[in-house]
Design a protein around this nucleic acid. Structure first.
Lengths: 349, 349
DNA sequence: CCTAGCACTCCACCATAGAGAGTGCTAAAT
DNA sequence: ATTTAGCACTCTCTATGGTGGAGTGCTAGG
């Protein structure tokens, strides 16, 4: 029956846990009396008060002012998450909702990812973001050069992860459609089934084998691929449920809300926030001040990678107030991530 | 010197104009004294009061409570927009900002459109949305069938408007890559340079010319094209600057903010809001209750189409509080739209 | 080591009052 | 016939002070 308790005693741990649980749902600072009434702690309010004094000293909770109840600090939430989470499953109806969502047939990767973000947002009531499979380790499936008007062409790249990138390049006046086709054919021979990362160098190495008049086009394609690879990552994220940030009074003031929404819009920043989810195997939780991003210090960010056991395809997560139901949210993120991974591998991605 | 005055007298018109101007910048209900002090109306406060009484009767302004100043109604803003706008140009530095933005080289349509939305949002300080060129009247440039793992293939469609759509389809086990290539080649012969709208029927009509073993694939492609055409429009919009909705205290209460942001997230709704911009040639302004969408009745929506003189490619616009600087915003929307149109036609789109 | 009791602190709520802004009306002035 | 000055009135906003309640820390006793 002894719960994990970290470095606190068992009683202190359960008091802290009760404080977090209660505060998350009520939103009001919680006092000793409420605590013993609602949670079977088996001690008197006075004892609880003593322990709360200790917990405050240790930095797990704080008082907004003298003679108010206690509120968990970031460290308090952290302890709660680290010790209280494992044995939790989503309520059956939500689990089924997820399952059913991933059984629907999908025809478009972008669509599917955006809707996944919407699903996650809907289940958690927080803002949700999903990153498309990373290009770095993707394998080239196909390259196409499509002529456009005015001595331009479009380089279309298809990867094994279902991503389709396009890039407009200039082509010399005297290169016609037939020649473009030939260039594309040669390029395909060269880089199909190669990792995209390696593609540019492969092409560069084989440059001499291309007819002289096509070299400009090949150069441009090379640059295009490299650009897709580096610059473009931040654009392939799907953010849904921003309105949830405003929804609740869980965020103290409007200025905070503005900051958070502003930060969410900054794709590049958000990319960083979710980046390290790719390295951890399980669900990653960043609470308040644990976020390096200043605008996010009022938030908890919960992320997970999705993909196969051995290889991460991408990552997803939610952003909400530190005062959130961690157990539920973590379970939801985990569940959606693993379902998405399964679906994509079912699609042969 | 006589300003346009609509159906009101000249003096009433200029008083209304003064009220709108002042309220938009100050945010406070404006009274008769302030009015004569700041705007050279040449009459006494008492006279202004009389006229304000008339304007209130006529529904152009209202009092939040007895003995407060007046605030423009939607009809008041409407009158202001209809009479006060024509002679206005963006401040030079902003005009230059737009110009410079569109001189930068662009390689990717999606990128360009998203950044255009960000630009528009930055200039106007409102939420901005840009719709990609519509698919309906686009012309097919290229179709490609790329094999994926697990008896699936990806249909990649490139249009003359620079859009690249993709769609995953199932293919029979016994169809290999060579056959897919052949099918793609035949399809290209059939529908390249045709309007996308016509493509499915074209293919259906020529179905008999395809070898038996390819007909399933061709059918699937047909369905994919049709799906791209109909279902997918709402997904190709780029929304930026949502945080501006929260930014200002121009929106009365938080609930309104939540509603607006929620509506913005509903891509399908937003599509409708911007849809009729395609029909009007100039800038369209919808103020408050003029919006059919209930959640948007606290907003002004300003939209414009972009494209060539004779053909609209797509539309863009901003969403902000009814209390906005209409002249500036309208000028900005107009300017960005025409610049975007010019840029795209420069790209041969 | 726990608990009951108690004095203390501070917020949240309410009522009250006064200042200020702006109005509508009336009567005088142009 | 308009316009203006004057005035009483209304309503909000802010500050003020008082009260109740929740919650605490401390102390003394179990």
């Amino acid at each position: 029956m002894a719960a994990q308790e970290g470095t606190l005693g068992e009683r202190r741990a359960s008091i802290l846990k009760a404080i977090v649980s209660h505060y998350v749902t009520s939103g009001e600072p919680v006092g000793s009396k409420t605590l013993v009434e609602r949670y079977k702690l088996g001690v008197s309010p006075a004892t609880v008060r003593n322990e709360m004094g200790w917990l405050e000293e240790a930095g797990y909770i704080f008082q907004p002012h003298t003679s108010a109840g206690r509120i968990p600090t970031d460290a308090g939430y952290r302890h709660f998450v680290d010790t209280g989470v494992p044995p939790f499953r989503l309520p059956a109806n939500e689990a089924r909702k997820i399952e059913r969502f991933f059984l629907e047939p999908r025809y478009e990767l972008e669509d599917a990812l955006r809707q996944t973000a919407a699903l996650l947002s809907g289940i958690t009531d927080h803002a949700a973001v999903v990153f498309a499979p990373a290009l770095e380790r993707s394998v080239v499936r196909h390259v196409e050069l499509v002529p456009l008007a005015g001595s331009r062409a479009m380089v279309v790249l298809v990867t094994n992860t279902g991503r389709v990138e396009n890039h407009i390049v200039g082509v010399p006046q005297d290169v016609d459609e037939v020649q473009l086709d030939r260039a594309a054919e040669m390029l395909n021979k060269l880089i199909v089934d190669e990792p995209l990362e390696k593609a540019p160098e492969k092409i560069a190495a084989a440059k001499e084998t291309f007819p002289l008049e096509l070299r400009d086009v090949v150069d441009a394609t090379c640059i295009a691929l490299r650009a897709d690879l580096t610059h473009h990552e931040a654009e392939r994220m799907f953010l849904e449920g921003t309105s949830n940030i405003v929804h609740e009074e869980k965020f103290a003031d409007l200025e905070t809300v503005r900051q958070v929404i502003g930060a969410l819009e900054h794709r590049r920043l958000l990319l960083e926030v979710l980046a390290d989810a790719l390295s951890t195997n399980l669900v990653s939780v960043r609470i308040g001040s644990e976020n390096t991003l200043e605008e996010m210090q009022a938030c908890a960010v919960i992320t997970a990678r999705y993909g196969t056991e051995d290889q991460a395809l991408g990552s997803l997560g939610v952003v909400g107030p530190t005062r959130m139901d961690y157990r539920r949210t973590i379970a939801a993120v985990h569940e959606v991530a693993s379902n998405l991974g399964r679906m994509l591998s079912g699609l042969g991605i």
